[in-house]
Design a protein around this nucleic acid. Sequence first.
DNA 1: TACAATGGTTGCGTTATACAACTATATCGC
DNA 2: GCGATATAGTTGTATAACGCAACCATTGTA
Lengths: 151, 151
Amino acid sequence: MSELNSDFQLEEAIGMHVNRTAFLMTEEIAKRFASHDLPLSAQDFGILFRLQKQGPVTQVEIASMMMRDKTTITRRIDGLVKKGLVERKPCPDDRRYFRVGLTKAGQQALVVMIPLVRAFQQEVLSDIPDEEKAITIRTLKQISDKLIKLK
Amino acid sequence: MSELNSDFQLEEAIGMHVNRTAFLMTEEIAKRFASHDLPLSAQDFGILFRLQKQGPVTQVEIASMMMRDKTTITRRIDGLVKKGLVERKPCPDDRRYFRVGLTKAGQQALVVMIPLVRAFQQEVLSDIPDEEKAITIRTLKQISDKLIKLK
DNA sequence: TACAATGGTTGCGTTATACAACTATATCGC
DNA sequence: GCGATATAGTTGTATAACGCAACCATTGTA
């Protein structure tokens, strides 16, 4: 290949590291959830956690925060409903939409999952100075903000 | 929810940022490849790039570096063969395996893709000091190394 | 020489995904 | 007030990625 390309090092490419890390973290946290009888993905956790924090939200809002098509969210919520973790409450003001909220079981699931997630994050970051954690998170946030603007 | 969980902030959770960034980067680079008539994923680029750098490798080696099942790789390679970018060369020493190598077209594709990837990475990191880039990459690498050990 | 290990493929089922088209409801402009 | 338009959500359908189980061919080993 030409000299133009010969200096490109995949090992120093941030994209590869971001992808690899995302894959491994997603896999590991799902495994830990599963070992506590919670067959849920990291994405599912993200939805449940936000429902807890922000109260019931519409599916379109979930779609927006997950950056997925609303039809994808319909089916993800279907899955969580089937597992009994969330419920769709019709909204009397505007009968077009639902408010998706946690059930008791969903809240219970979070009681298990949140400590797992916290412990996991502390574990993978245990050797890393606080300063560097902060820089890493800030850098990732800057990259994703820039990419969102780009869309 | 209990006080135990109330201090958990998803916004400061590295997992969410890693995932989000990976998703956005993967999507954007695929879009850029596509706009140059190269309907390939970031993963495909990863394979092609390594073939260029390391010369022909076996499918099991690819599976290992991509952290995927070998059957998944069989089908990914099938796709790249169909696109004319790689070829399977039988290995006379040991007739069980192939060496997968770049074709001329595969090399040409890299000539287009490598500058795209390089420009993309520079672009998303443009506002970030070199020191912080380095810390971010190192941190991600430490996390993924730790997770690999954990398996 | 029988048996285990290795590289690769195929069959199959699962999951995530989005687009197009649709229903139902709400809102806006005139 | 009414017709056009926008919005929330669902369903049909297709695609892609993925991995497990089972398999074949070949090689290495006891």
